[in-house]
Design a binder for these strands. Structure first.
Lengths: 275, 275
DNA sequence: CAGTGGTCTAGACCACTCT
DNA sequence: GAGTGGTCTAGACCACTGC
């Protein structure tokens, strides 16, 4: 292994070999890889080099590492679909979408709604000089001093899956609304507090690695790919009234937008994303 | 540093300290961090521990590492907005959106459309037994044997930014259409080859770390957070006719969906996402 | 308890960038 | 050439998991 001449680093060649073995079925989905000391001996490289290769494949969602247990080949993704209604500011949470054939058993922890699910306030931080606060002020056409902010977390299937930050040009907000732990749909609560109706202006989708704060909120390692959905909602007369920024654990959830009416011909035999 | 008792690992405490210094302005945006040996000496930890902390902050898009030069505090993101028209299958590429105050200078390499921009074929792989191929077959309600596949890359601002895979139940496809390097909008070409019109059925957004193949195509390190946009388009009678899967470098581009008509009141003084 | 992955150190050599 | 980050090794100790 170490004798093989190449300009690509050893750990990446090792990662490629592991991925090839997975694709070839040598390590089938769900199976345990040889332990790090074993791989280290088999390939004749240091254990740290093995770890570097394994870490890359873990970030690419090819492997799943369970501390004290072993490293496993990830089965095909099963993710929560979050279906968005463009009219109301409402999600349809908890619909489980299986991305692969129907005979794949559901992994544990991906089932439907459980106790404690839903949205809850985690903090109401002062709107200061963070880059996010400045961005919110810009998007709403206000100064940071005019804004209030609320941070929430949405739990699905018992796990925190979405971290949210809301900025509104309403100050002060009712204290009850900001109480940590307060449950309930925050968009509706904010619209109610401001006494306005809200309509989508625009929404944008991006992807970023979890920073240290989001990693803690969502219970994932820093750097985990997060789906970021941000946007502005307006009152019916077009005044920007809400800037939202949501961070979603990318490996466990996805946003689905439907363009055709439900009940139409489904050529895939009902196997499309849950609605 | 090393004497400080805590159950959080040393490298993460170091990462947190670095992030605090960045937030506090000790290391301003765009500035160079002390070199790894310097940080190693300053904090009294091994260089590998420093590297672990820096690597986390790099994946979280807080730092940018330039080999042989140094490690820098990332300036506020400037990203290409990809605006989607829900009717046609068309993008509006190349519109640059600045996420932060307007006096921030544009970094190099983020300007408008340059030579070589646009979509080009990179491969027409056989539709075999990969997990993606199976998923495409399932979504289109076909067997893998009935499908053709084309992979393309879209370049914006001179850099590859979007990797695409298309599956269609048309076989064989015209050889000219599959020629590596062939430029032009692939959705339109595929619709033309099949002699049909295409409408959106659904689109889903997710986030995932780049696997080894996508990392090479996009010129980013494996594990880089990618925005994944996938979906099915139908013919007007509702027959699934195209499954698309796009992977977009999350740090440099985002998808924008507009819900209000253009020309309406823009309370933010025209500072919203490019249209 | 044995085995797994997680962290940390010390030291070495290399490839790259800029001057 | 000097300084930067990139890779790799050897060895150690720890925390977690499951039997």
């Amino acid at each position: 292994m170490a004798t093989h001449r190449s300009d690509t680093p050893l750990y990446r060649r090792l990662a490629r070999q592991l991925q090839e073995r997975i694709a070839a079925g040598t390590y089938p989905a769900g199976s345990r890889l040889p332990s790090e000391p074993e791989l280290s001996a088999d390939f004749g490289v240091n254990r740290l080099t093995v770890r570097q290769a394994v870490a890359e494949l873990e970030r690419a969602a090819v492997l799943e590492i369970r501390r004290g247990v072993g490293t496993f080949v990830r089965p095909p993704a099963v993710r929560v679909s979050i279906t968005v209604d463009p009219r109301s500011q409402r999600f349809d949470l908890g619909s489980v979408h299986r991305a692969l054939p129907l005979d794949t058993p559901l992994p544990e922890g991906t089932a439907g709604v459980v106790e404690g699910d839903g949205e809850a306030v985690v903090a109401a931080p002062a709107v200061g000089r963070s880059a996010e606060d400045d961005e919110a002020a810009r998007q709403l056409g206000r100064t940071v001093g005019e804004l209030s902010r609320v941070d929430t977390v949405i739990r699905i299937g018992g796990r925190p899956r979405v971290a949210n930050s809301y900025w509104v040009p309403t100050r002060p907000l009712p204290a009850e609304l900001l109480r940590p732990g307060r449950p309930g749909n925050m968009v509706l609560a904010l619209a109610g507090a401001a006494g306005v109706e809200l309509e989508y202006d625009w929404r944008a989708f991006g992807a970023i690695g979890a920073d240290l704060a989001d990693a803690e909120l969502l219970g994932v390692p820093p750097g985990t790919p997060l789906l970021v959905r941000e946007g502005v909602s307006c009152t019916p007369d077009g005044t920007p009234a809400l800037y939202v920024r949501r961070r979603i654990d990318g490996s466990s959830a996805r946003f689905v937008l439907h363009y055709r009416e439900p009940g139409g011909t489904d050529g895939a035999g009902g196997s499309g994303p849950a609605r």
